[in-house]
Design a binder for these strands. Sequence first.
DNA 1: TTGTACGCGTTATCAA
DNA 2: TTGATAACGCGTACAA
Lengths: 337, 337
Amino acid sequence: MQKRSTINDVARLSGVSKRTVSRVINGATNVSQTTREKINSVIAELQFSPDKQARGLAANRSYLLGLIYDNPDAMYIDQVQRGVLKICSAKGYELVVHPCTYKNSDFIEDCSHFVKRSNIDGVIILPPVSESKELANSLREQKIKYVRMASVDLDDYANMVVSDDRAALCDLARYLVSLGHSNFAVISGPKHFYSSTERLEGFCQTLDLLGVDIPDERIIEGENSYESGIECARQLLQIKPRPQVIFANNDEMAAGVLKVAHEMGISVPEQLSIAGFDDNLLAARVIPSLTTIQRPVSDMAILAAKKIIARIEGAELTEENYLVKPRLMIRESTRSL
Amino acid sequence: MQKRSTINDVARLSGVSKRTVSRVINGATNVSQTTREKINSVIAELQFSPDKQARGLAANRSYLLGLIYDNPDAMYIDQVQRGVLKICSAKGYELVVHPCTYKNSDFIEDCSHFVKRSNIDGVIILPPVSESKELANSLREQKIKYVRMASVDLDDYANMVVSDDRAALCDLARYLVSLGHSNFAVISGPKHFYSSTERLEGFCQTLDLLGVDIPDERIIEGENSYESGIECARQLLQIKPRPQVIFANNDEMAAGVLKVAHEMGISVPEQLSIAGFDDNLLAARVIPSLTTIQRPVSDMAILAAKKIIARIEGAELTEENYLVKPRLMIRESTRSL
DNA sequence: TTGTACGCGTTATCAA
DNA sequence: TTGATAACGCGTACAA
């Protein structure tokens, strides 16, 4: 295996200076058609590609994108990674991952240390970490570009890709009411997440519009885990009259509800309808399969990657469409009365 | 925010040449105690840390580790990533991910292009891609160090971290026989994966030792997907006499079996015991929860990261323990007669 | 439109 | 034990 060819080789074989080669590589316009063609053919022949390190050192860029997240849902992460990579590897960037622990007290420090030592040009932040104002501030101070994926519009649109959870929950509420239900209960997500509030409000307000009320004691706060879903379900299912529908803030908790219903001999969906959120691996696999809401994760990831690269490369961002709408997936766990 | 301090700043403030600072940074021994201390204090004061790009350019290293995989199981990927990161970020490396598509004809080319353009110092390869001899060869030609995670020992031990699936399946077979079963069926994985063969053989040979035979028509080949599990289960469950136990090569397929049993009114585990492999998200969540085999994924990932870094840094690898053994997880889907 | 020359922040050779 | 100084491969003022 011979050594990699450099810009100097290309220059020499093309009979021009490396400055001109550099121009061609970086797509400068002021190069004559003929020399450009000559250079390109030599580049192709040598299979030359510029060295990232050297390039980064000279231009103060690393061609590395970061991904910061703390999400228990691995499926989500995987989809995001693949989506982002589709764009960024096509544009010559690599993706450096950084899972973190939101709850740790040194979380901000940990992330800002990461962006510093990794030298990334920009970073995409996933929910729920993306909701952290402190992290965004810290990144801004470090002059590092970021894009946050979230369920609420909590920053300049240039820094956001948001999924309209609220709208999706309106759809779900309408669907459930159309099934004839009026006796609802909710296991919400942790209140300190904006996404939980968005979903809860979208659901309740729509029910309210349709003339359905949920008493306060039938809305309890879970922790988005399977175990928490079990615990909350136990509480809700002993209220009289027993709820006919339970909406859980995510599929993990909905799976917990399913488990409890099974234990208690309550048949789903005959005696109880259950709906979740995420459409994760579980949703289609459990018995009965879960009615849930699917976020267009891949689309969001692609959008986020495009945005962060555009910003790194100094493109002007038009007020483009940065909002995506999740989709209701109707399966077996919900039924009409 | 001021500019980052460089090795020159450190040298100037310490009153030495930057060559000496470089020595201290890289832990060379031939520096006097006093100058070393002086330099270290200046480094601490300036919060200096060497720039990765420059370092890479000079030393022909990137301090980047790659992760190549094509695995449908996102949980597995996530665990591996976190495990690897635990080690590599502690040692000053970042992790660059590269999901790929094994089946594509340009798969080898795609991966080798990745290692070329990303400039990674070494790469960890996950199953099933890790079984590809072609990929390993291609990497070797490119003089790039790699570590393969797999179920079989198919390379020099320095390049491998292997999980002893065969041994785990012996355990499972013994357990199931101890339950009193003798009427078995298997949904194996694709035959072209070594892991499928390892598991199948480990299972069947142990049964054989225990005096239990599985007729050929009760061993069929699945594709490791949920849908494939359903299809195979339909086939197996209409054989007379109906199998009392089905082992599926992974949990996804086992979940498919569960689904079919439910459809056919066969109660699990009363009339049918089911076992899977992976202990993925599904296993503990489905009803009844799945008896399965858990790989110590995190341990393997950590081991792989340690190995690849040791090799990059030229450490001598002793014939250390590179074999880990998966663990039988007994849950609700299996029962004695 | 093209080229010269220098800088980016390190490591490494060689001499002192 | 230390220090000039040359790479490393590329981008970019500035000049032509």
